[in-house]
Computed example of a mutant assay.
Amino acid sequence: MSAAGRLDGVVAIVTGAAGGQGESHARGFVAEGARVVVTDIAEDRGRALVSELGDRALFVAHDVASEAGWAEVVDRAEHHFGPVGVLVNNAGVDHIASIENTSLDTFRHIVEVNQTGTFLGIRAVIPSMRRAGGGSIVNISSIGGIHIVVRSRIAYVAAKHAVRGMTKVAAAELADDGIRVNSVHPGFVDTEMFRAASVPPERMASVPLRRPAALEEITRLVVFLASAEASYITGTEHLIDGGLSGGF
């Protein structure tokens, strides 16, 4: 990170942080001085990450769609580190299928994790952030949560659009508490999942910067929004897609 210590003394929760973007965010937050609660359903990977990060990190096994699970995460964060100042709602799942081949159970599951999990996280941290004197909530949506046309992802896109809308409502409602709420909308990101998808070269050619984002590029934006440097930014969506949605 370019400016060390931007999150000194801050207690942060990062969901879905055992790998991919969430892991990158957790590492970036610790590097900036934060104490981080890493949550995920992948317990082995999450505990291994926290073991590497040291005493500035705590792992909590966590299903973001569980109301009781959120209560436990916030309680353990406060008891271990103190009131929560940052929440990154990063956990998410995708499902690729046509509308006709998307079952109701699958649709509900995608919404439960991506949308309901975000709602529960926002609601759960409000009292703790009030005790902290304010805070920042960063909701990880997607380029698919704004306007890009995609096929075979009706549940995912529905949920990611909802995250964008919930962000705006929460930003307006929580402003008087000193809590800022923003959404981040990545395009292609160089993760294990992206590499496994084997995106066709012609699709990548439609990205003006001609490459996916590196994990640390997304993390730099998330760190910025979590920090005091973004003190006048709330209720907005932040595209980070290499120009893909710009209509070039």
Rank of each mutant, 00 (worst) to 15 (best):
S103V: 02
D75E: 11
E78Q: 13
E78V: 15
R108C: 07
D75L: 09
H95Q: 09
D105F: 11
N90V: 10
G82R: 03
F81M: 11
P83Y: 02
V86H: 06
N89W: 07
S98M: 05
R76H: 05
S103I: 05
V73K: 05
L87N: 08
T102F: 11
S103M: 08
W70A: 03
E100M: 13
D94Q: 11
T102Q: 12
D75P: 00
D94H: 05
T106L: 13
S98I: 05
N90R: 02
H79L: 08
D94C: 02
F81P: 08
G82H: 02
L104I: 14
S103W: 05
R76C: 03
S98E: 07
I99C: 10
S98P: 00
T106A: 04
A91W: 08
H80A: 10
P83G: 03
G85A: 07
V88D: 04
E78K: 11
I96G: 00
N90C: 07
T102E: 10
N90Q: 02
V73M: 08
D105W: 01
A77G: 01
V84G: 05
G82F: 05
E100C: 04
N101S: 11
G92H: 01
V86K: 00
G85M: 08
V84T: 08
D105G: 04
I99Q: 11
G92K: 02
L87W: 09
V88S: 00
S103T: 15
I99M: 14
N89T: 10
N101E: 15
H79F: 00
V84P: 06
N89C: 13
V88I: 10
R76A: 13
D75R: 13
V84C: 07
D105T: 15
D75M: 03
V73D: 06
F107M: 12
P83N: 00
T102V: 11
N89F: 04
P83M: 01
V73S: 05
N90P: 01
H95K: 10
H95G: 01
T106E: 13
R76T: 09
G82M: 03
I99D: 09
D75T: 12
H80M: 00
F81V: 12
V74L: 09
N90I: 10
H80Q: 09
P83D: 02
A71R: 15
E72D: 15
H79A: 14
W70Y: 05
H79P: 00
R108D: 14
R108P: 06
A91Q: 06
D94K: 02
E100I: 06
H79E: 15
R108G: 06
V84E: 07
G85S: 08
E100F: 13
F81Q: 10
G85K: 02
I99Y: 14
T102H: 12
F107E: 14
V93S: 06
L87T: 09
P83H: 02
H80S: 10
G69S: 09
N101A: 14
S103E: 07
S98L: 08
V74P: 00
A97N: 12
T102N: 13
P83T: 04
G92M: 01
E100G: 15
A71E: 14
R108V: 14
S103R: 04
I99H: 13
F81N: 10
A71S: 13
A71M: 12
D105S: 15
V88P: 00
W70D: 04
H79V: 07
A77W: 03
L104N: 09
A77R: 03
E72S: 13
V93D: 01
A71V: 14
G69E: 03
L104Q: 12
A71K: 14
G69A: 09
L87C: 12
S98W: 02
F107Q: 12
F81L: 09
